[in-house]
Design a protein around this nucleic acid. Sequence first.
DNA 1: CTGCAGGCCGGCG
DNA 2: CGCCGGCCTGCA
Length: 277
Amino acid sequence: MLKIKINNFDLDSTMTCGQAFRYFKLEEGSYDIILKDRVINVKKEDNYLLIDSNNYDNLENIVIDYFDLNTNYETIGKYLIEKDCLLKDSVEFSKGLNMLRQEPFEMVVSYIISANNSVRNITNSLNDISKRFGKKVIFNEKEYYLFPTFKDLKDVTKEEFRNCKVGFRDSYLVELMYKLNNGLFDLDSIFSMDTNTALEYLKSLKGIGTKVASCILLFAYYKFDVFPIDTWVKKIVKDLYNVEGEENIKNFAKEKYGMYCGIALQYMFNYSRNKTN
DNA sequence: CTGCAGGCCGGCG
DNA sequence: CGCCGGCCTGCA
């Protein structure tokens, strides 16, 4: 059992706020998570995370990186409230919510599938794809499947994707695998791009528009100056600020929240979806 | 039955 | 250019 000291980190909201799909909630505050090449179990106990895994190789670094525990989100929250006191409720509601640092390939596939789709369907499709094409791992006597690599999905046909209930997104996935496996698209190169270049590059893939590309940059590439504008964010920005229209919201967020506008919108999304009213 | 879920594509004006 | 209909799927 690995123990990692934490402060101001909320495991539940970080996992359930919609940025990750391949986790399994066991009981309250205990999660099995498929993480890169292994499965981990995470629990929170006082100011520590308790981690178990089927693979302890470099585990501490991998976990710290995944939960982004070395970034001070309290400071970012204070910065956002200073810029905009109306964001106070969203920021405080989302206290301890960290941006996960997830695998680019997995995020691209996940958010292509997310278009006009529900979380339940997305999760089911990703689990289907993993079960058919990913490596099996037994952890605590349970059967899990790692997320496949693009090499694993090299020869998967439209029909096989369709059998995983991805619907009309099947051809987008086939094209993605073709480009990745033939050197026509390079996910690693995005790390060193500025945000606008990265957005346009991602949008050159079929099935990736502005919203999907923004989510990928936010959840896989540590780029916080993006605008994942969806129906929830639209609603809260209209209610609080009476700003409407994609372009107007984008300008509004950029001007108000600067380099952290992606996190601001994520907090809004989290608050809007989960607050009780 | 219809509408909708964290959109995107393609065609048309 | 911007606008808008159609779209897999599962569920209310």
